[in-house]
Nucleic acid binder design. Structure first.
Length: 186
DNA sequence: GTCCTGATCCTCT
DNA sequence: GAGGATCAGGACG
């Protein structure tokens, strides 16, 4: 998918809305539509990359179109798409998905029957899709975990400040699809 | 080495 | 609305 590469991170964050995230697992194929994202820039105090390249965030400095998965709060994984040029250190956090298929697998992974509670948050969607640290550095264009363009019509994009961070709170780098009931928070 | 913080979510009250 | 689970990375000495 060329639109992931060599574009500004904010543009990618918007462009990812409406696309499908597909994970092929031994249990079956799981698909979700991306409905909420956040951009993390190289100049951004909230970004892991702001303090330079380390062993943990090395993937953020790699080529665009790959995944960056890490553990937060000791228990939840967060799934990011690496953007911009290699060495830059920018990424887009996928915050919420609308379940499309493989919903029974998601329910099993999340141990809930409530569809709106399956993927409405970064930790939740990793749980639902079975994403963990093993998926760090995956090629999102051509592997078992990938992103494809689906709907041609452009969704209504709402922009707000980000959630769950203590630095860079004033930056309007969160984007979600308007009137979608599967986002993490209004 | 120790100490603190965090791109979260769930379970109570 | 508040608090706890639980651990890796980063700051400091």
């Amino acid at each position: 998918m060329k639109s992931l590469v060599n574009k500004k991170t904010i543009d990618v964050a918007k462009a990812l809305l409406g696309k499908h995230l597909i994970h092929k697992t031994p249990d079956g194929k799981i698909v979700g539509k991306i409905v909420e994202t956040e951009a993390y820039l190289s100049t951004d105090p909230a970004s892991h990359s702001s303090r330079g390249k380390t062993k943990r965030n090395a993937q953020m400095f790699g080529p665009a179109g790959k995944s960056y998965v890490y553990l937060v709060y000791g228990m939840y994984n967060c799934f990011n798409v690496v953007t911009n040029k290699e060495g830059k250190g920018e990424a887009v956090l996928i915050r919420a998905l609308e379940p499309i298929s493989g919903i029974e697998i998601m329910k099993k992974n999340r141990k809930t029957e409530n569809i709106k509670n399956l993927c409405s948050g970064p930790g939740k969607l990793c749980d639902a899709l079975g994403i963990n640290k093993k998926h760090n550095g995956m090629d999102l264009i051509n592997s078992n975990l990938k992103i494809i363009s689906k709907d041609k019509k452009k969704p209504t994009i709402i922009s707000t400040t980000r959630i769950g961070i203590s630095k860079g709170q004033d930056l309007p780098l969160r984007f979600y699809i308007g009137r979608n009931e599967f986002i993490s928070k209004q």
